[in-house]
Design a protein around this nucleic acid. Structure first.
Lengths: 378, 378
DNA sequence: ATCGATACCGTAAACGATTACGAAAATTGT
DNA sequence: ACAATTTTCGTAATCGTTTACGGTATCGAT
């Protein structure tokens, strides 16, 4: 079956020149609908797939997208990539994975970026940055290279499209939920303050408190590092407080830290949620399997992945059309409504509060079918 | 900084021809050590990175590796990819992600493979197959395309290198551990029997029982589907048995099913591990955070990822040398000992038993420092 | 000094697409 | 019917690298 089909073979079979075939391949104008149809049929019959390397060379583009992400072992990254993969998989584009081993290894990160620029392999980049990113993106952005930031936790450079999560509102809703359940002394374990998200979530926490007229107690706010160990340590610090100042609820800035807090509570013989309620942030896949199942703020990473991929694809296609401002040029699967993106876009995705057992109000908002054992794997 | 460096610029700067530069790029012979040095220095100074598209076109290869994997949301896949990514990242190769949405969608799978073949984009493929794979690989293998199977759960086709986990021994050790703890009535929740792994694990379970002279009770063996729900259902079936036939320990064929079994136990007021011990298989990242932390058989996916990438790289480099049988041609990071792989290689990785609280013998083999809260994130 | 071998290196032709440019064909207006 | 457009399509150059092939240097042996 079709050992080595080239554009030339298709041209011969269809009785046209390579140029014409190339035109239909790139949905360019200047080709008769009838011939276009004929060529498409031949390609279909022969099962022709263009050689990406060749078109990348000739056109300076590549139908290759890069994904620059922190370790896949971070809980929500796979969800994100699932969304990205589904969208990209429905197009002729392929996805190149640039993953970063060590978060703190800034050199690593800029090395990868310069490599991305130099090899000119991908024609668009999707970047998940856990830290300040401006200086890394300057290189790309200055070359008018399509870049899309996801959940940038620093302050994104001007004019760079990005998509993020509304951390403040998520934290606000979580805290408000605890307040509604009757809690007045609510502690907060922050993420590392070097990340913007930590401030945003803290802000939402404060807002809810203020709204309810609850004074902020600085002793009930501690900084962690997103990992279970610090969750445990901070929770222990809270439990060491004199009884009248001790919190009855803990809002952790990440699910991992919530795990630690729960472990600390249990080690002291405190029951969750009876003695202390715990709410997390993230909705890791494993948070539904915990005992007790964790109430948490879900970050819609799957949806963000889809959305991000669609946007990036639109950018890339747009910059591809740039020099040849013609009619269409969208994939069926890419929403055509997202055609013109000239002003940089910023999208903020909404979070949702997932109520499970760890806050002591399992039946408050959800139907009984949403139990602890459920998981989102498909 | 270096807008568009090509091999031609390097050649000019170094006072040689493009051909010579290309030779050093591909670690080919026939170039004077002094010139090689000079060229390397120039490349270094200029920060030159070859254009992958161009070399892919010209050479018919590509410095691109493909990874065909099931959803990243499967618990151990990210660990695998971490290993792969680290190895590949240390070479000039890039990694293309071909991930499959729905496992049962066999058409999807073969579509992707034919796409891989047709675009001729990658020069080697690493495939994680959760089911029978022979027919999909025929297309690749027949073209002498470097392929490496990981943890193929069916029977791999002849002559295809693959790397897998010793499921039988893992299950054997887990069961033996329970026996040593004094259990005589040990139930087993199998994975889907359409997968070979399920049979292998069952086999290990039987072996341990037989070795201890414990008769196999068919009522204590049920088939699940790897997911928590069936773990719960099977466990409930066990608990419904009359007291004298009821198991005191459950060995689940996956961590997820173990989660379900623990949930079922707790719902009945049975305490884990006091009333019933539970052991899983996989060592999902979240299994350490469970309450109680889960004793389980760890599958070394990270190590497998590294190993697989190294092997695949060696294959690709070997097939690259094929027509130009010269001296060296290995990366510093790729173990040179793995140079010649002519006979297809099959590697079986050992599992390890991770003892935590859910089997009731936390301090049996491990030091106290290995606690439940520990996680393997780096 | 001459002859092979050998080591080194340059020339030029691919590789499979894209695209500027211009020519031919079809369409329109008069 | 003819000029002016407009539509459609082919020619040929080009992208950056690899590699077959052939040409010099170099060197030891005769």
């Amino acid at each position: 079956m079709a050992e080595k089909l080239t554009i030339r073979d298709i041209a011969r079979l269809a009785g046209v020149s390579k140029a014409t075939v190339s035109r239909v391949l790139n949905q360019k104008p200047d080709v008769d609908p009838a011939t276009r149809e004929r060529i498409l049929r031949v390609m279909e019959e022969q099962g022709f797939v263009p050689n990406i390397a060749a078109s990348g060379l000739a056109g300076g583009r590549s139908r290759l997208l890069g994904a620059l992400i922190p370790s896949l072992t971070w809980p929500l990254i796979p969800e994100l990539m699932r969304g990205v993969g589904e969208v990209v998989g429905a197009t002729p584009y392929e996805l190149i994975l640039y993953s970063i081993n060590d978060v703190n290894h800034e050199k690593d990160r800029s090395d990868i970026i310069s490599r991305i620029v130099r090899t000119r392999l991908v024609s668009g980049l999707l970047a998940v940055f856990p830290g300040p990113s401006a200086k890394y993106l300057a290189a790309l952005h200055s070359r008018s290279f399509p870049v899309l930031l996801i959940d940038d936790q620093g302050i994104p450079p001007e004019n760079t499209p990005w998509i993020s999560v509304d951390n403040r509102v998520g934290a606000y809703e979580a805290t408000r939920h605890l307040i509604r359940l009757g809690h007045r002394r609510i502690a907060h374990i922050q993420g590392p303050l070097k990340y913007q998200v930590s401030h945003d979530r803290y802000r939402g926490y404060c807002d809810a408190l203020e709204e309810a007229g609850i004074p902020l107690d600085p002793a009930l706010v501690l900084e962690g590092d997103f990992m279970p160990q610090t969750g445990r340590a901070c929770a222990n610090a809270f439990f060491d407080l004199p009884p009248e100042r001790r919190p009855t609820a803990i809002f952790a800035g990440s699910d991992y830290m919530a795990y630690g807090a729960i472990a600390a509570a249990e080690q002291r013989g405190l029951r969750v949620p009876d003695d202390v309620a715990v709410v997390g942030f993230d909705d890791n896949p494993s948070s539904a399997h915990m005992e007790p199942p964790l109430t948490t703020v879900r970050q819609p990473f799957y949806e963000m992945g889809r959305r991000a991929a669609e946007m990036l694809l639109a950018f890339v296609e747009a910059s591809r059309m740039m020099h040849h401002p013609s009619q269409n040029g969208q994939f069926a699967s890419v929403t055509p409504s997202a055609a013109v993106f000239d002003p940089p876009v910023r999208v903020k995705m909404p979070t949702s509060l997932i109520i499970r057992a760890s806050c002591g109000a399992s039946r408050h908002l959800h139907s009984p079918s949403e139990q602890g054992g459920g998981d989102r794997s498909r």
